[in-house]
């Protein structure tokens, strides 16, 4: 584990300046707890507390999830530390009018990946240098060229299976689901005040952790995130049962790119395929 002291110092300086500006109520960044295997979300509200902020190679979390939380929003204007992947989620929140651009200050951090070994999403990241932030701390980093084959390799592994093998694989994986909904709660784009799973009149999706209910839940999750998911991988990281949810997310992203030439979250003013109509749209299904 290594702390990037140059970036951390710049970050603390920027945070201190922002908090001294009366308009910024809270900086959402990362902090360290000695024994923890990763750097946790940290909320800094006073300039004298900025030394709690760090940036290292264990900043796994996507802090954009906090932008839709009432307890945070009530504080006032928010400064938020974003890696490139996190920024994509912020862009979707802006696009969907969950947050207003004037209510947040984006503190971008160039990032070469989190963890050792790097997770797949980091090794194929095309957003190492976040674009369009208010402040960038740290120097730009090299951005390797990534092709579609690399990006969607997990989805390809599953596509290579026969229909029967795929069902065997997914029914095995989804049988493990204990319906804790960590995947939903950690997702920056699952901000519904009332999730479909919590709607009981009628109960659209069975809440029991049997295969039928688990498949229904995971399919509903995928449907609601297709064309929106930015592939940050938080759902898979949060899943206590190690279900490979990123493979589903990859497939969604792959189809959106192939059929609509669309990647979610690259900008905040993009037109999302599901909320726009074009005569050129493919008439194939999405799954």
């Amino acid at each position: 584990m290594s702390t990037n002291s140059t970036v951390t110092e710049s970050l603390q300086r920027a945070a201190s300046e922002l908090l001294s500006d009366v308009n910024i109520a809270v900086i959402i960044g990362y902090g360290r707890n000695g024994e923890s295997p990763f750097s946790h979300p940290e909320f800094v509200r006073k300039p004298e507390d900025v030394e709690r902020l760090v940036f290292d190679d264990r900043c796994f979390g996507n802090l954009a999830v906090y932008l839709s939380k009432d307890a945070i929003r009530r504080m006032g204007k928010i400064g938020i530390v974003v890696k490139g992947c996190d920024l994509r989620a912020v862009n979707v929140l802006l696009r969907e009018h969950v947050v207003k651009r004037e209510d947040i200050v984006l503190i971008g951090v160039p990032c070469t990946g989190q963890g050792d070994p790097l997770p797949h999403k980091c090794s194929v990241c095309e957003q190492r240098n976040p674009q369009g932030c208010d402040i960038v701390v740290g120097d730009p980093v090299e951005q390797p060229q990534i092709n579609a084959e690399q990006k969607y390799s997990d989805a390809a592994d599953i596509d290579a299976k026969s229909i029967e093998e795929r069902w065997e694989f997914w029914s095995g994986q989804l049988s493990k689901c204990i319906r804790c909904y960590a995947c939903r709660n950690v997702c920056p784009l699952c901000y519904c005040k009332r999730c479909i799973i919590d709607k009981t009149i009628p109960q659209w999706i069975e809440t029991s952790a049997h295969l039928r209910g688990n498949v229904a839940w995971n399919v509903a999750r995928a449907f609601h995130l297709t064309g929106r998911c930015v592939g940050c991988g938080e759902c898979e990281r949060a899943c206590p049962m190690d279900i490979p949810l990123s493979a589903i997310n990859q497939k969604m992203a792959q189809l959106m790119e192939e059929w609509f030439d669309f990647q979610s979250g690259l900008s905040s003013d993009e037109k999302a395929p599901f909320t726009t109509f074009s005569m050129d749209d493919s008439d194939t299904g999405i799954l």
Partner: peptide
Amino acid sequence: WTDVSLKCLGCGACSYL
């Protein structure tokens, strides 16, 4: 209680395990 709950996403993994 407000301070300790700020980062909690209410994900439920702790209770389920």
